[in-house]
């Protein structure tokens, strides 16, 4: 009789595996990690929207619909709309050359593409001032022809392009390398020309990578601050992007308006994260089946 409870006890599901920590250790580690993330990620995210709506909806709506804010939105969209297609073309060309061919100096080229990531945004802005600024290399010529780049929209576009150059290329290169060249070779043997091969074979195979890179590129293009700040001149309504507009409002102690505009950018960040997660799960599904 006394053996029965003992047997039951030992045959109960044995939850602790050899490759797992004890439950309390797991609990503490999880709690620690989540506390850190709450403090550094969640709290700021909540704070943006809290501060934006602190003075009510009316103030919020007014802040994001005043002419200067609308001009900033327009400029931000314009800069992104120019930078993204250019970087998209660059990314596809670079990935085609790097992933589909073997040539010397390839690894150096890959490092060069990554270069803008390791350059401080402030330095990125500065180098364009050195070239196109009044005292810059092309300054006298530009003034002669009445073209302004620095403290004007072209400068903002250039700075935006610089900081977003690598995004699409570095998504596509590993993806296209992993896919190899056999499908393209098969298409060529079957009589397709280069553009047909790119359009019917390569691009459909990399569409998720393209979208992924574009979304990240867009987030950075719309949110860039340092590089754009150097070349912008902060002219309200003219050379102010959303990110810069936030700074101006904040420095004028117009906190509620600053956070209202900031909340738009935070919303953009959340959409970016959502799309990114969606694409990742799509790709994971595709590769697992």
């Amino acid at each position: 009789m006394t053996t029965i409870p003992l047997l039951q006890a030992s045959s109960a599901p044995h939850k602790i595996l050899v490759t797992q920590e004890s439950p309390w250790a797991r609990w503490i580690l999880t709690l620690l990690a989540l506390s850190f993330l709450s403090l550094f990620l969640l709290l700021p995210l909540v704070a943006v929207f809290f501060e934006a709506l602190k003075k009510g909806w009316d103030v919020y709506i007014a802040a994001i619909t005043e002419p200067d804010a609308l001009a900033a939105i327009q400029l931000t969209l314009t800069a992104a709309a120019i930078a993204i297609p250019l970087n998209l073309a660059f990314g596809i060309a670079a990935a085609w050359a790097i992933a589909k061919f073997e040539f010397r100096g390839k690894s150096i080229l890959i490092s060069l593409i990554d270069l803008p990531f390791s350059v401080s945004p402030v330095v990125a802005g500065l180098i364009y001032v050195l070239i196109f600024g009044l005292q810059g290399w092309m300054g006298p010529w530009l003034r002669e022809h009445d073209i302004s780049i620095i403290f004007a929209v072209p400068g903002i576009v250039l700075a935006t392009i610089f900081v977003t150059v690598p995004f699409i290329a570095r998504e596509l290169i590993p993806l296209m390398q992993a896919q190899g060249t056999e499908e393209e070779e098969a298409a060529i043997i079957l009589g397709a020309n280069g553009w047909q091969t790119l359009w019917y074979i390569t691009l459909p195979n990399i569409k998720w990578g393209l979208l992924y890179g574009t979304i990240l590129c867009n987030a950075r293009a719309m949110g860039e601050f340092g590089a754009v700040s150097v070349v912008s001149g902060h002219i309200r309504g003219l050379t102010n992007t959303l990110s810069l507009h936030v700074e101006i409002l904040y420095n004028e102690y117009n906190s509620a308006a600053a956070f209202a505009v900031a909340s738009l950018l935070a919303l953009l960040a959340l959409i970016t994260l959502a799309l990114k997660t969606f694409i990742e799960s799509r790709v994971a599904q595709k590769t697992s089946r």
Binding site: L37, L41, P44, L45, A47, V48, E51, L216, A219, M222, G223, E224, F225, G226, L242, S243, L244, V246, E247, Y250, A258, F259, A262, L265, A266, L268, A269, L270, T272, L273, K276
Partner: peptide, 15 residues
């Protein structure tokens, strides 16, 4: 986790 990548730095700064 990727919020700091996606959130513009000026927004992070003022927040």
């Amino acid at each position: 986790i990727d919020l700091p990548f996606a959130l513009p730095t000026s927004v992070a700064g003022i927040t």
